[in-house]
Simulated assay, not measured.
Amino acid sequence: MTKTLFAAAAAASLLLAGVASAQTAPAPAPTTSPAPEHENHAAHPTIDSTIEALVADPATKAVLDKHLPGLDRHPAYGQFKAMTLRQIAPYSQGNITDAKIAAIDTDLKALPTE
């Protein structure tokens, strides 16, 4: 277990160095209004889903690409894909902040349900 956690932490550190270098100009704000809080978002993964689940859904992958471009192309993706953004944040050297997670969460909640 410790070896797996260490590998995940190392992968997260490498990931964030790659994500930081891959970032570009911020994407324009979405043109749709946020969905009401009471709306069911079960059709898409949430901020508490694994990175792999977020990448597998085209709509949520677009949100990740907006905030963390290149995340799914990182060489260590296979080592951290089963973790959530909150789980890898402490190993991100400050690249995945609470504010960034909140922004991703807001965008995920704004996605239309199918």
Rank of each mutant, 00 (worst) to 15 (best):
A8E: 10
A99R: 03
I104Q: 14
A62W: 06
A53F: 04
I101Y: 11
N40T: 01
T32Y: 13
A20H: 11
A59V: 10
A29V: 11
H41Y: 02
A27G: 03
S92A: 10
R86Q: 14
P28W: 04
A22G: 06
A43W: 06
K61I: 02
V55C: 15
N95H: 12
A20G: 07
L14S: 11
T2P: 00
H38P: 00
K3I: 04
P30S: 12
Y77T: 05
N40W: 04
G70V: 00
L5C: 00
L5F: 00
A35C: 13
A82Q: 15
T97L: 02
L108T: 08
L108N: 08
D48A: 13
V19N: 06
A110E: 07
A103N: 13
T84K: 14
G18Q: 12
L16D: 11
S13T: 02
F6P: 00
A20M: 08
L16M: 15
A42P: 00
S13W: 04
P28K: 04
H44E: 03
H67P: 06
A99E: 15
A9M: 01
I96T: 02
A103M: 06
P28V: 04
Q87N: 05
P90D: 09
I47F: 08
M83F: 15
A29W: 03
H74F: 03
T106Q: 15
L64M: 14
P30D: 09
S92P: 03
A17I: 14
A29Q: 14
L54V: 12
K61F: 04
L108D: 06
I104C: 14
G94H: 02
M83K: 14
A11K: 01
A62K: 15
A102C: 05
K3T: 08
H44G: 03
L14F: 12
P30E: 06
V63R: 08
I104R: 13
A22T: 03
A53C: 09
A25T: 05
T32A: 12
T106R: 15
A43E: 09
Y77P: 05
K109R: 15
S13Y: 11
T106V: 09
K100R: 15
F6W: 00
A22M: 01
P69N: 07
A25Q: 12
A27Q: 12
K109D: 08
D107T: 09
K109W: 02
T106F: 14
I101D: 09
I88S: 03
A53S: 15
K100D: 00
A27M: 05
A99H: 01
L85A: 09
Q93N: 10
A8Q: 10
T46W: 07
Y91N: 11
T106D: 14
P58D: 14
P26A: 08
P26I: 03
T60I: 08
E114L: 10
R73K: 14
L68H: 02
A89V: 11
A62D: 09
L108R: 06
I51R: 10
H74R: 07
E39H: 02
A59F: 14
G78P: 02
K3S: 08
K81W: 01
Q87E: 13
R86L: 08
M83H: 10
G18V: 04
L54S: 01
I101E: 12
I51E: 11
G18C: 09
T4D: 00
F6L: 00
H67V: 03
A27S: 10
